[in-house]
Amino acid sequence: MTRQPRHPQLLKVTDPPVMVGHRCTSCLRIAFPPDPYGCEQCGASATELEEFELEAKGSVRAVATVHRHHHLTPATPFTVGVVELVGGPVLKAIVEGEAVAVGDSVTGVLVDGEDHEGNPIVDLHFRVVT
């Protein structure tokens, strides 16, 4: 059975996994996450935004290990990073591993998890490329 992503509109479960953003056909801005309403740069409506695949590769611009958290998941400690994708957009995501440093190259990995109802899903995290 194909593993289902938590948010199917963000992710294609392939090997390697592919991230899905949008490109505005009016101003050509590439954005992640894809927006269901319109383009923040030129105001074009969602009908003018097309799916745009992004490689899940980038570099770490900032990193923080979280020791206390407002929610039960993820369990602490966990590490999050600001990742600048090779395709341009910058995003925040969980980065696997303990020794993550600014400047590290990272690649996307699929991680098994559960949705709110306990159903199995996969999330995209990043991992340092060694």
Binding site: R6, Y37, K92
Partner: peptide
């Protein structure tokens, strides 16, 4: 507007 970070970034 879902994102990858989910509830991990407070």
């Amino acid at each position: 507007i879902p994102n990858l970070e989910g509830g991990s970034i407070v």
